[in-house]
Design a protein around this nucleic acid. Structure first.
Lengths: 160, 160
DNA sequence: GCCTATTTCATACTTTAGTATGAGCACTCT
DNA sequence: AGAGTGCTCATACTAAAGTATGAAATAGGC
């Protein structure tokens, strides 16, 4: 119930101001009626006033929705979760290039920015082994450096 | 001039309907005035009517923008094109980290997998300069290697 | 004008990356 | 059993990356 009141706070505020204005107008109506020709101007003023209030109200109610949309969009862009289809595409690309399991593992860790030494420690292998794997990897990917390998793997969808 | 008319078509239509309604009200005003107690109701009706018109007008003017935003969003998600919003986010992140123009350029080319030598040739600079830039870049990004820098930049949205 | 940040370059040095080559082991397929 | 493949490791070497330090020119702000 409190949430409902908070959500439609604008509406209630608007309703309150509407009542207040009507009271004010009721007090002033006799003076305006004395000037019979000013009646149209009086109506016009009311029309313009409430039109502006309507526009203001509409904009107030619409803007928050836009912000929420934007937030959702950012989540969509940055989270980039892996679907089964993505994984299958990665597997197909992997086999097309003839990458072995270890080579794929090394590539993955390379993309995370690890050095050969760090990759070796992570996989409980020697530095020499990682160098061998990465050299073979570069041959298969037809690149010369690890940075190129990462970039190419990203383009081929081998990496998230 | 025609463009101006087209752009504010809604406004003119609204103005026309306002005039029409005022005329209608002028015709009907005597009947309402006969019922002196109905004056408040009369004003209330006008207020509500024009409020609704205001809301309608505001929504008509706002909705097209929302649609444009949505289209832009879809491009971001599926086509991976850079939107103005993305560029602004990149700029904000860039300033937050205190990256200079050159450092950002070098980072961009690093992410493409270029070697320091290639970056130097691309930017018509010496190898030493690129090394200096990349060293400063690593300090600002708090990383130790170019591969880490690229990975971090990607996570921060500094890179497409 | 002075100060600061940026950009540029150089030189010397250390570390990491990458290549080439060879070799041993395990597994599979024929 | 032999051939092939994948994984492991080593050594020696070259190339590239990264660090440290100094220096000079330029542009913008106070």
């Amino acid at each position: 119930m409190l949430r409902f009141l908070q959500k439609y706070k604008q509406v209630f505020l608007y309703a309150a101001s509407l009542v207040a204005l009507l009271l004010l107008l009721q007090v002033l109506q006799y003076k305006f009626l004395l000037l019979s020709h000013s009646f149209e101007i009086y109506i016009l003023c009311i029309a313009i006033l409430f039109t502006c209030l309507g526009i203001w109200l509409a904009l107030k109610l619409v803007k928050p929705k836009k912000e929420i949309e934007t937030i959702v969009v950012e989540k969509t862009v940055y989270q980039q979760e892996l679907t089964e289809a993505d994984k299958e595409a990665m597997e197909r690309e992997r086999q097309k290039l003839g990458l072995s399991n270890r080579e794929t593992e090394v590539l993955q860790l390379m993309a995370e920015g690890l050095s050969n030494q760090e990759i070796a420690e992570r996989l409980f292998l020697s530095l020499a082994t990682i160098k061998t794997h990465s050299s073979n990897l570069f041959l298969k990917l037809d690149v010369k450096r690890r940075t190129q390998a990462v970039e190419k793997a990203r383009q081929l969808g081998l990496i998230a």
